[in-house]
Amino acid sequence: MHYVALYWAVMARGGALDLEMTAIAVAISVVVGVLAAIGKLYGGKLLAAIITGYVEVIRGLPPILQLFIIYFGLSQFQINLSPFAAGLLWLILYGIGYAVEIFRAGIAAVAEGQGEAADALGMTRAQGLRRVILPQAWVIMLPSLMTFLVLQVKNTTLLYLVGVADIMYQARLGTSATEQPAIMYGMAAVAYLVINLTLSRLGGVLERRVEASR
């Protein structure tokens, strides 16, 4: 048990880094994702095809392979990113691929009918999106967005493979120092469990609040 006490603080620091990177990446990919989803829906065929292709590549390749292409692959062309930069860039690119589809589905679900009503009131498309469609789409998308957040937290485990000092990295170091893999990976598992279960509970509370306020 004294191993737990010994490594608790280090793991927490790793967890803080994970959460920080997740927060930055999710914030950026949500903003880009909304714009890309609007582009895909209203931006013409060519733009829609490009965005669809991007989403397919992100969904079709294993996450670890994408990360390695950014970190190791780019080094072949003398583009050497730090582990943090490569990890964050990957989380953002991956997140955009998921966010686009979430927003596209959400906007499309509301736009049918509501979009026509906004048109009928003489709103421009931008006004219709901003005032009518997006405020309603957020509510529909809340569950998928929470799933997305949890997915990104889980994805941060891969970052240690390129040297980011996250929870997994600390568990790995702790294991080689103490030769107690059961305790070290157990602590990592508990850390992720606490983070992810908290996030899904928060998501549930948020959903009920929003539902109740409607």
Partner: peptide
């Protein structure tokens, strides 16, 4: 179901290989 869905797969892989090995 709740627990396994919340733990990242890589952690499970390491637990199955290293942690189970220790016990």
């Amino acid at each position: 179901i709740e627990i396994f869905r919340a733990i990242p797969v890589l952690v499970l892989v390491f637990m199955a290989y290293y942690s189970l090995g220790q016990v």
